[in-house]
Design a protein around this nucleic acid. Structure first.
Length: 471
RNA sequence: GUCCCCAUCGUCUAGCCUGGCCUAGGACAUUGCCCUUUCAAGGCAGUAACACGGGUUCAAAUCCCGUUGGGGACACCA
């Protein structure tokens, strides 16, 4: 059994797209399951569109979601000599030819053909002219077979048959000497011994173009697998107008990397009725057989739910760690420095059941920093009334009488007072909630007190009582 | 226009390969109820789908053909 070698080969023309992450994920899962090798290759042969910032963005994104690669990142622009020498081999073998048709001419001929409703493929006018390239500005075309058929046995879609007579003689070296995509991928996939080429559905029709090049070069043809596309809610290919598509944008919006991967893998793959998978489970259970053949609509609502699940089930310490940068971004950097890691974890536990993103968590957690609390005016007006002040004062006295905080004891004292005063639980609970958190909604009161600690609880109770009596 | 892919609730999907167990299962969203000190979470229940038309068969969501619809590709982009 030869070792499985797969790759993720993005072109650095922007941020790392969530569709790209999904493609990388399927490759990565297969590599890890098969104890194979996962290669990262940057396809930057288009000089006008590739940028170094994009390369950094890809690396940053891959690292954030934790898809680690074993080889690379390779950069195609560092391998130019390799492509050229292989192109020359094809020329020598008579499998390629120089073409002096100008780009503009080809363009207008294509448009003409389109208008007449004819085939848009290259008419092959330079094919048998035996041209040389003395001025160095000709393009090199591959002599694509025009008879028979090319059969691809796709890992996901099964057997697909293409007629060779529709295939174009595609350009493999541009007039500027740079290789084109369909040529450089073939050379790289061959030289990097890629055994399984798994990429997006949009590359499906590139496959019958590439297969003959593998063969002409004398390389074995790898297995292919084409992942269905991700669509927006209008069933059009997912793009910016459907919302955020950059993986790092989701980091900023408070999503956990594991949640992103879990959602993305379920978009096109399934294992019975299971929704939530650990990475290890994914590696074990992944199978091409269970990859969907049809495109999937990206559903932000479900992503949100998956994220909420991960906030609940992930180790709180891990969530706390992911939360810190967002707290800093929200201007709570100073406060975070003054608290212990243990307390921060406690805080996460306090609110994790009630939020769907880390950004929401930042908001929920805000009242627990600092000595005093800022009231939501509407809540204060509604609950911190003169009528409640005397009861609040009694509660304060009873709490003060208990020397150390104990959830059971404080809750007992609270309930006893409620009974004695003949009020409903909520009549006292809401005012207390506002005194402690400044808001009308919060986690359970006694959990809040525990996180606040005895001193701050009493302090805020006094503060609230003052406000109530003056109202 | 040519070539290719695809088709189960609004969405992600199970089932399809190896027809009967499907009165089509789960999840998100949505509606109602329960729990409840608020907000969530949780629990229970409900609405909701085999695109259409022909075959094959005792039997079709499942196999075959066609139609329709959606998507992709047809660059000196990747």
């Amino acid at each position: 059994m030869t070792q499985v070698r797969v790759r993720f080969a993005p072109s650095p023309t922007g941020f790392l797209h969530i569709g790209g992450v999904r493609t990388a994920l399927f490759n990565w899962l297969f590599a890890r399951q098969q104890k194979g090798v996962f290669v990262l290759r940057i396809e930057d042969t288009d000089q006008s569109r590739s940028t170094d910032e994009s390369i950094q963005a890809i690396i940053e994104g891959m690292k954030w979601v934790g898809l680690d690669w074993d080889e690379g990142p390779y950069r195609q622009t560092e391998r130019m000599d390799i492509y050229r020498s292989h192109a020359m081999k094809l020329l020598e073998k008579g499998e390629a030819y120089w073409c002096i048709c100008k780009a503009e001419e080809l363009d207008s001929r294509r448009k003409e053909a389109e208008a007449k409703g004819l085939s848009q493929k290259y008419d092959g006018r330079c094919r048998d002219r035996g041209l040389t390239n003395p001025t160095g500005d000709a393009a090199l075309r591959f002599k694509a077979p025009q008879e028979g058929e090319t059969v691809v046995d796709d890992l996901i879609k099964g057997k697909i048959v293409f007629d060779n007579n529709v295939q174009d003689d595609l350009i493999i070296l541009r007039s500027n000497g740079y290789p084109t995509y369909n040529f450089s991928v073939v050379v790289d996939d061959s030289l990097m011994n890629i055994t399984h080429v798994v990429r997006g559905d949009d590359h499906l029709t590139n496959t019958p173009r590439q297969v003959p090049i593998f063969q002409a070069l004398g390389f074995p043809v790898p297995q292919f697998g084409h992942l269905p596309m991700i669509l927006g809610s209008d069933k059009a290919r997912l793009s910016k107008r459907h919302g955020a598509t950059s993986i790092m944008a989701y980091k900023d919006m408070g999503y956990l990397p594991d949640a992103m991967l879990n959602y993305l893998v379920r978009l096109g793959w399934s294992h019975r009725d299971q929704e939530i998978f650990t990475r290890q489970e994914l590696i074990e259970k992944f199978s091409w057989k269970n990859v969907q053949t049809s495109a999937a609509v990206f559903n932000p609502e479900k992503l949100l739910w998956v994220n909420a699940e991960y906030i609940k089930i992930s180790p709180p310490a891990q969530v706390a760690q992911a939360l810190v940068p967002l707290l800093q971004a929200a201007g709570l950097g100073g406060e975070v420095q003054n608290v212990s890691a243990v307390w921060l974890v406690q805080l996460v536990v306090l609110v994790k059941e009630r939020v769907k993103t880390l950004v929401e968590m930042v908001d929920w957690v805000r009242p627990y920093f600092g000595q005093t609390v800022t009231y939501d005016e509407e809540a204060a007006k509604k609950f911190l009334t003169p009528a409640i002040a005397p009861i609040l004062a009694k509660l304060l006295t009873r709490f003060e009488a208990i020397p150390t905080f104990s959830k059971q004891q404080w809750e007992g004292a609270f309930k006893q007072l409620v009974e004695e005063e003949g009020v409903k639980m909520g009549q006292l609970a809401q005012p207390v909630r506002v005194t402690l958190t400044g808001r009308a909604t919060s986690p359970g009161l006694f959990d809040v007190m525990e996180v606040l600690g005895r001193d701050r609880t009493l302090f805020r109770l006094r503060q609230g009582n003052e406000r109530a009596s003056q109202a």
